[in-house]
Amino acid sequence: MTSTLKGITLKGSAELVAEFFSFGINSILYQRGIYPPETFTRVTHYDMTLQLTTDPKLKNYLTNVVSQLKEWLFECTVQKFVLVITCLETNEVLERWQFDIECDKSAKEISAPREKSIKTIQDEIRSVIRQVTATVTFLPLLETPCAFDLLVYTDKDLMVPDKWEESGPQIIDQSEEVRLRSFTTSIHKVNSMVAYKRTDSA
């Protein structure tokens, strides 16, 4: 027990980051009103109240993505993880939550745990999620019904698993970008950023 508190291994780091994405996606979907708020339930994690979806289909989809992502994180083959929010009617990209992942590939060879306590990592993650919540104050209202998609940027030589497809980057035309906080597990570093469509109302 004490040993796990002291250091962090690649496996643990991948799990932590994947867990962050799971909560992060749920928070964004709830905060941006992509799904009705009544389909979410409150849980306490990272010493804060978070919203998790209760919709079985959505839950299943997210677990599929996140478990695959965890594998790639463990292999250090992920470069970016992007949540794209598109308008249902026009398919126009309205918002793009981008998480750049920097993997320390040397961790694959050296299995010795790194010196960083889980507590400080979780503190950093908490501040990122807090910021995600706070973005509602400046992001433009999503007036039309929206859908979301999850994109993973991986290394070129990666074998594409079943059911996964290649996709375009889905960049927003004329966007404004806001950088959010980053956190690091000392093996994976995650930089967050949100880009949103500029609204030109004089």
Binding site: K57, Q68, L141, L150, V152, K163, E165, G168
Partner: peptide, 19 residues
């Protein structure tokens, strides 16, 4: 890099749901 996404869209919000 290549960009991957899981095939098949996640389900959309229920009909008539307004943000």
């Amino acid at each position: 890099a290549k960009i991957l996404h899981l095939g098949g869209k996640p389900l959309n919000a229920p009909e008539g749901y307004q943000n």
